[in-house]
Design a protein around this nucleic acid. Structure first.
Length: 507
RNA sequence: GGCCCCAUCGUCUAGCCCGGCCUAGGACACCAGGUUUUCAUCCUGGCGACAGGGGUUCAAAUCCCCUUGGGGUCACCA
């Protein structure tokens, strides 16, 4: 049988899609959904939606030690949060299930038996100790590190008898001679010498299957047409292609996505930043900003448009347009993009999104915020231009929730105010002037004009007026429009804070 | 170290596959200026890259080769 794509020279095109598109995302539930995994899922999903195909979810939980249902739930929840939906999966079922590898072990055993019977695989009785020795020797001699095939020479019938008698053995794939090449939709023609491919383990001595084996069996059973995954899997591909061939199937088409890298240029790890999607969700990155940013890691809509959504992604996504080189995760740009989304939201929507963060910061209860919704929306509006992620809001509006006699003054703010002569007197005078004017409520626009005029008539430079007053009201000297702040605070609190502030400045 | 992949501003990228329109475009960051009571937003401008070397060609960021650099991977993990 000829290698699937041998001789094909040109870069694969979208027109190469001849069979129905079925792609999958196959996470291992051994941790939270990784941000890179989220992008892999997003691109697979986009490809399916773009080509009218199916997107399926498969749980790779062959390692019982590390896999948990908790993580599985969290991963599904993360994908849903991103707005991805799947046509087949462990929760929704489908015609090619089960979609959890732990529920497919019998299937793997059957396939392994077939491979053993057809001579494409063999039993290996080598102990872990011997394997270590072999490896060590190869390392010392600077040889290629691989199984030395000692058990390949065993008579299959005798080997089977030993296993039947209870002896432990693994099943190894018998890598044929030759060369394996495949067409990668992102990288083009990729080839490996089979001599470089190890006789890898398909079934462990306890009968459980390994990753490369399950993936192929499942992808065949689930009629997967395209496999788009991270570049770290590129070296697994020849093993898998060879297995497809041994099984008598055509391999699917591949596409290896560039890695998402940390600031150190290495594969994103916990060392270099938050790697779990959940971390960004917890920090209050808008959902659509996360999706948008993930798109930008390795792909571009048109080279000019930075802010766009899934609609544009699905309309324009081409796997061949994905960048080959790894992308360093740029938190600055991510934050900027999040800010773009925050700014485009309606104040009402932003308030709803921020409310849980305000509650979590213990500024107010959810009920309190709901009861004063109009007010809260105004408070959020006052900071909308200043925040990038939801969690940045609470500290910025904390002053609104503090008691009038316990407004926290920032050190640098106090220092700035101290530079103005008679700051305490200014606050006192302003309070006196202000009191009768806000008895019936605060009109921010009106007050803005009249207060500036008052300051000018008093011969005060504007900062000498604004900074002390703002310090008394908010505890800082920069931030939202001061008259909007006063409207938010209300006459009583404004007057109380000005009085306290003047006294505190005088002492 | 073996094998595989990759290489455009500090970063994300457009252009590359199908050489000329590229005195290489956009965005983030940074710097400067404007707007603002301040901060932020917003607006204007600036800085800044085809890793190096050979080919091929009338012409190369674009095609080929080498070097260098970076990454991935070398499990009875996935």
């Amino acid at each position: 049988m000829a290698p699937l794509s041998c001789g094909a020279r040109e870069h694969p095109r979208s027109s190469a899609v001849t069979r129905s598109v079925r792609v999958r995302f196959a996470p291992s539930p051994t941790g939270m959904l990784h941000i890179g995994g989220a992008r892999t899922a997003l691109f697979n999903w986009a490809y399916a939606r773009r080509h009218g195909g199916q997107f399926l979810l498969r749980i790779e939980d062959t390692d019982p030690e590390r896999s948990t249902r908790e993580y599985e739930r969290a991963i599904l929840e993360g994908l849903r949060w991103l707005g991805l939906d799947w046509d087949e999966g462990p929760d929704v079922g489908g015609p090619h299930g089960p979609y959890r590898q732990s529920e497919r072990f019998e299937r793997y055993r059957v396939v392994a038996r077939e491979l053993l019977d057809s001579g494409r695989a063999y039993l290996c009785f080598c102990s872990a100790e011997r394997l270590d020795e072999v490896r060590k020797g190869q390392e010392e001699r600077k040889e290629r590190i691989a199984y030395d095939r000692r058990c390949m020479a065993l008579d299959p019938a005798q080997a089977k008898a030993r296993v039947d008698a209870g002896e432990k053995a693994v099943v190894r794939f018998k890598t044929p001679a030759g060369q394996t090449r495949f067409l990668d939709h992102i990288r083009g023609d990729v080839s490996f010498e089979n001599a470089e491919v190890d006789d890898w383990v398909m079934l462990r001595s306890d009968g459980s299957p390994t990753y490369n084996f399950c993936v192929v069996v499942d992808d065949v059973d689930m009629r997967i047409s395209h496999v788009f995954r991270g570049e770290e899997h590129l070296v697994n591909t020849p093993k898998q292609v060879l297995l497809y061939r041994a099984l008598g199937f055509d391999a699917p088409e591949f596409g290896h996505l560039p890695l998402m890298l940390g600031s150190d240029g290495k594969k994103l790890s916990k060392r270099t930043g938050d790697t779990a999607l959940q971390d960004y969700r917890d920090a209050g990155y808008p959902r659509d900003a996360v999706v948008n940013f993930l798109c930008l890691q390795g792909w571009a809509l048109d080279g000019a448009t930075e802010v766009f959504g899934v609609k544009e992604l699905v309309e324009r996504f081409e796997i061949k347009d994905v960048q080959k080189a790894g992308a360093i995760f740029d938190l600055d740009k991510f934050r900027w993009l999040a800010g773009e989304y925050v700014r485009r939201m309606t104040p009402e929507a932003l308030s709803d999104a921020c409310a849980p963060f305000v509650v979590a910061a213990n500024l107010a209860s959810a009920d309190e915020l709901a009861a004063r919704r109009a007010w809260f929306v105004e408070a959020v509006k006052s900071e909308q231009a200043r925040i990038h992620v939801y969690s940045e809001l609470p500290p910025r509006i904390a002053y609104l929730f503090q008691p009038d006699d316990a407004v926290v003054w920032a050190d640098d703010a106090l220092a700035a105010v101290r530079k103005h002569a008679n700051a305490a007197q200014t606050v006192r005078d302003y309070r006196e002037w202000l009191a009768p004017r806000i008895e019936r409520g605060i009109d921010a626009a009106d007050l803005r004009e009249s207060s500036k005029k008052w300051a000018q008539e008093k011969g005060l430079k504007l900062p000498a007026f604004f900074q002390p007053v703002r310090l008394a009201l908010c505890g800082v000297v920069q931030g939202a429009d001061m008259f909007d702040v006063m409207a938010l605070l209300g006459p009583e609190h404004v007057l109380a804070r000005l009085e306290r502030g003047a006294a505190r400045l005088a002492s």
